[in-house]
Design a protein around this nucleic acid. Sequence first.
DNA 1: TATTGACGCTTTGTCACACC
DNA 2: GGTGTGACAAAGCGTCAATA
Length: 311
Amino acid sequence: MANLAGFDLNLLRVLDALLRERSTVRAGERLGLSQPAVSAALGRLRHALGDPLFVRQGQGMTPSSLALALEPELRRVLQDLETLLRGPGGFDPAQATFDFRISGTDFFSSMLMPALVQRLAARAPGVRVQLVDLVPDAYVEMLDRYEVDLGLIPERDFPAWVAHARLLTCGFVVVARRGHPRLASVPAAAPVPLPLYCALDHVLCSPEGRLHGLGDAALAAAGHRRRVVASVPVFEGVLRIVAQTDLLALVPVPIARMRATEGTYDIYAPPVPISPVHLCMIWHRRFDDDPGHRWMRGQVAEVLAPLGRVG
DNA sequence: TATTGACGCTTTGTCACACC
DNA sequence: GGTGTGACAAAGCGTCAATA
């Protein structure tokens, strides 16, 4: 392995870009270098670390086991270096250049990303933001493994090393396709009669692929049950299914309202009270005082603030 | 003793091209 | 379509002497 005295630390940025892109062409684009420059840097990395690091496979580069093993620590070191070089309190969004990964459902793809991207373009053009799918039951671990910088999930208990802040409280409504034959006598926005609600089939959004959710718990508390016949991992899919079938769905108020003007479905109140969900952002405490991270948390909170308590 | 400028070597970049 | 390599150019860096 290399020693620090003779090692060019810029090579770590190249290794990071190669691990992210798995291609010398795309790594070059990410770094602002030509493909041959990345190839040469990879050659120097191979020599310094005594490992091939990447082997060519088809039209891309596959990392070696050593490259994969280095990845988490490499990200941490680069993050620390950025923080160090930025200096205390010296964060300037207009000059900042970093990537920020957020994990969340497609709720945030609709309710957060458009406004957030617009903000970044105006205030921090060098910052790139990525919304990545929630990996079921691994939200917290992804923070620890440097796979995401921020998680957007329903509030619950978190480990001590996870910091969190509540963003909004979100109620739920029932949606059904416009012209649903069984709901003709139910006025829009009125509660769906409980017997009818339980008699109809349902679709729900579950990134984990579950066939039960909040609605089932609320019904069970009232001594009733419904039949969920489908689940999809995104709300967009739920709304499309609702619009094209006789299924009902329970969806967050902001999502329902956002698409209501399209006229493909109507909105009703749930037949039983559904406890609102507190959505929060979570991050690793090692980023508590990171100026860039703190600034991004502020932007996310500000974008979602107008939704406030909905429903 | 610290700073500055000249000089030369080394490193790293791009371009063009061969190869897989 | 993508990677690796040779030729060449530019920039960076260390050394050394001159100077304040």
